[in-house]
């Protein structure tokens, strides 16, 4: 991360990012960071790690101030985290999980058809990329760990699309928002896949803060996110992410995820 001019009076803000959005666009990240630093009048440090778990751990141990997390780790550590803001996608703070198969597979109609096949998850702490298919299998009376002949994690939604697209996996679970965004920015990737199932509406991956975050900082960061939609530059950044803005959001938004987690015995 490029170092911005230090402001002695204000400690830098450390923000953890996860592949709940397309976090591999370095130039977009630096523009967003620059915008936030201007808005927050302090240095902002984006921290990226290979898995959700590492970001959660950094957050829980106080090494991060904020993080853009999936709804699933949020509900798991709801007591140790504070909800900061929830993005709006297509006007709602909701998204879905997609179940995809390779485009040349015209047989599979549902997850049940993938029995004994190879399945790609995105991250064991992902709601859309792991919890939802686990939940679905559990609801169908299957043992999720025995249903597939093999499964693996790609540690990013985009890579689930790639793995299914090249046929490495016979099916995969992916963040619907990521899939839809990719279908606009990288249509060739998504064209190699076919959606065979969608989850119901689930709470969109939220911005959260560590529990002991000072109220002023929480408020400052939340307002910055909320104000993005009100400024041209912020709108432009939101447009890059295909998002419409942020709302404060309520923890109840994630109750459905929590319910699923309970059903698969992971909460």
């Amino acid at each position: 991360m490029p170092i911005s001019p230090l402001r002695a009076e204000a400690p830098p803000m450390r923000v953890g990012l996860t592949p709940v959005f397309l976090d591999d666009q370095v130039s977009f990240l630096s523009r967003w960071r620059a915008w936030l630093e201007k808005k927050l009048e302090r240095q902002v440090i984006f921290v990226q790690r290979g898995s959700y778990r590492e970001i959660v751990e950094l957050l829980l141990s106080g090494k991060l101030d904020f993080a853009w997390l999936c709804g699933y780790p949020y509900v798991r550590y709801r007591r140790q985290l504070k909800l900061v803001a929830v993005p709006l996608w297509r006007g709602r703070p909701l998204y879905r999980s997609y179940l995809i198969v390779p485009a040349d597979d015209d047989q599979s109609r549902s997850l049940a058809d993938l029995r004994g096949k190879v399945f790609a998850y995105s991250d064991p702490d992902s709601n859309s990329g792991y919890l939802y298919p686990q939940y679905l299998l559990t609801m169908q009376g299957e043992n999720p760990s025995l249903f597939f002949a093999r499964s693996f994690f790609t540690w990013a939604h985009r890579k689930v699309v790639e793995a299914v697209g090249v046929g490495l996996a016979d099916g995969g679970a992916v963040d619907g928002y990521v899939w839809e965004t990719l279908s606009e920015t990288h249509p060739r990737l998504t064209a190699a896949t076919r959606i065979i199932g969608r989850s119901g509406d689930l709470g969109y991956p939220p911005f959260v803060a560590r529990a002991d975050i000072p109220e002023a900082q929480l408020h400052l960061f939340r307002s910055a996110l909320l104000e993005m939609a009100t400024e041209p530059m912020g709108m432009e950044l939101l447009e890059s992410m295909r998002l419409d803005g942020f709302i404060t959001g309520r923890p109840a938004l994630y109750d459905e995820i929590a319910r699923m987690a309970v059903r698969v015995g992971r909460l």
Partner: peptide, 12 residues
Amino acid sequence: FVSTTPRKFPIG
């Protein structure tokens, strides 16, 4: 285990 041509050499 893996191959660059998964369709020819499916995993497993």
